[in-house]
């Protein structure tokens, strides 16, 4: 029973964030749902090994699951591919300037940016998740912000986007 309680608590605390994490990085809701289910299946196995099941542990699992998904998919696992697929899948043809700009960032820099601003992680959490130093995270974030600003600035600004 203890195991189930721990698992349910972890699920309650982490599911929605994990789902959004996948929704941001995969082509559609069905894929996000599949990967999310996989994460919690693995998490359940981990509760059997007396492991702690913090949100960060869940995200560690999620990162690996996403990596495997990317490798097994026909497309590259890049965000660009995911975003393009998502747009195509949803019949959305109006490319967002932000998405276009994001797709031009270096993948490592972009991931730090997205983990920070979309997934809401602190720089310490980002460095834990990416297995890198806090200094490296700060540097990448700075670089990503600067590059994104420049890209958005040089883009034409149709229809007064982002006033």
């Amino acid at each position: 029973m203890e195991r189930e309680k721990r698992f349910m608590a972890a699920h309650a605390a982490g599911h929605d964030r994990i789902y959004r994490y996948f929704r941001r990085r995969t082509e559609n809701a069905a894929t996000a749902e599949d990967l999310c289910a996989e994460v919690f299946r693995i998490a359940w196995e981990k509760t059997g090994q007396d492991g702690s099941l913090s949100v960060m542990v869940l995200f560690g699992i999620a990162k690996n699951v996403l990596g495997n998904h990317g490798r097994s998919a026909v497309r590259s696992a890049s965000l660009l591919g995911a975003l393009q697929l998502e747009r195509n899948h949803d019949g959305r043809t109006d490319g967002s300037p932000v998405h276009e700009a994001l797709s031009q960032l270096r993948p490592d820099d972009r991931e730090v940016l997205l983990l920070t601003y979309w997934d809401g992680f602190s720089s310490t959490e980002v460095s834990d998740l990416l297995n890198t130093s806090a200094t490296a995270v700060r540097m990448r974030l700075h670089r990503a912000r600067k590059a994104l600003s420049n890209l958005l600035q040089t883009q034409t600004q149709p229809e007064g986007a982002a006033r």
């Binding site: 994490y21 932000v98 601003y117 979309w118 994104l148 600003s149």
Partner: peptide, 14 residues
């Protein structure tokens, strides 16, 4: 920048 990023967040429309 944060606002533009937030508005482009696919997770926001979940």
């Amino acid at each position: 920048l944060e606002r533009r990023l937030a508005s482009a967040d696919p997770g926001g429309s979940v």
